[in-house]
Each structure stands twice: as structure tokens, then as C-alpha cells.
Amino acid sequence: MRVIAEQPYVKVERYIALTGKHYIEDDRTLYLCTDRILSKYHEFPLEIVWDVSYRRVGPRGGLLYLHTKKGVNVYTVKESPEQFIEAFRNVK
């Protein structure tokens, strides 16, 4: 299992306190390996990954969609994942 590409993403958690709504950003990384895609808590064998796509939201970031046999997983990215998507398509 060799890492081919990496894509930083952010997990945003929202919580409500007496002082109002608060957001916590946790910086994480997606790893494209020769046989799977790994996130902090999930592992997706490439056999079940159909496609990876991106939708720009706002001036800088957007949403990275991982289309799998078990559904779609969405990751918030702050920079364009074009190189990650290109690497995925070359491996797939």
C-alpha cells in the first residue's frame, strides 16, 4: 500500500452553547493509495469507489464528493482537489 496522492480537508463541527453557535475546524487528510482511499476514520477499497468529483463553493474552497457503492461521502476542502482527482482517475 503506497500513497499516491494526498488531499487536505476540514471536518467542521458545530455546537451550541449559552454564548451562541460555535464551530470547530479539524484539519485532516485524504490519502489515495494504490488499492484504497483512506480518511481519518474510514477506508474505501478502490473496487467500491466509482468516482471522485468536486463542486466549488465560495471563492476558494468547495466540496469533494467520493461516490462509492455504499453511498456518497462529502469532504470540505479549502483548496482545489484537481491533482487528487486526476491521480484517482489514473489509478482507476
Rank of each mutant, 00 (worst) to 15 (best):
R36H: 12
D26R: 14
G20M: 12
S80Y: 03
T19A: 12
V3E: 12
E79C: 04
D51L: 06
K78M: 03
D35Q: 14
Y23W: 15
V72D: 10
S80T: 04
F44S: 11
V57P: 00
L32G: 07
K40A: 15
L64A: 04
I37Q: 13
L64D: 11
A5N: 07
M1C: 12
F44Q: 05
E43F: 00
S53N: 06
G20V: 09
Y54P: 05
Y23P: 02
A87D: 06
G61S: 08
K70I: 05
I85W: 07
L63N: 12
K92P: 00
R28G: 14
K92C: 04
I85K: 08
H22S: 13
R28V: 14
L38I: 14
R56Y: 13
R14L: 06
V57F: 09
K70H: 11
Q83D: 13
K21Y: 14
R60Y: 11
A17R: 07
V77A: 02
H22Q: 14
P59E: 15
P45K: 06
G71Q: 01
A5H: 07
L66D: 06
I85C: 03
R2C: 07
R36A: 13
S53P: 00
V91P: 00
V12C: 02
K92Y: 02
K70Y: 13
K21A: 15
F88A: 04
M1E: 15
V77H: 05
T76R: 05
A87G: 03
A87Q: 00
Y31H: 08
V3W: 02
G62D: 12
I4V: 10
E47I: 08
L38D: 15
L66E: 12
F88C: 01
E86Q: 04
L64T: 10
R56F: 06
F88E: 13
E25Y: 05
Q83M: 03
A5W: 07
L38S: 12
Y23E: 15
T29P: 06
Y41K: 09
H67A: 13
L66M: 09
Q7V: 06
A17W: 11
E13P: 04
K11V: 14
R89E: 14
T34G: 05
N90Q: 15
D35L: 01
L66V: 00
V3K: 09
Y23T: 14
D27E: 08
L38W: 10
R28L: 14
H22Y: 07
Y54V: 12
H22R: 09
S39Q: 13
I24T: 11
N90D: 14
P81D: 08
I24L: 01
Q83H: 03
K70Q: 03
E86V: 01
E79S: 08
V10W: 02
E79W: 04
I24S: 03
E43I: 07
L30C: 09
K70C: 00
K21H: 13
E47L: 02
E25F: 02
H67K: 09
S39N: 15
S80Q: 06
Y41V: 10
V49Q: 01
M1G: 13
E47C: 01
G61F: 04
H42N: 14
K40D: 15
L63W: 12
I48F: 02
T19W: 07
A5M: 06
G61C: 02
R28E: 15
H22G: 05
I85N: 10
A5Q: 13
I24Q: 06
G71H: 04
E13N: 10
W50L: 05
C33Y: 10
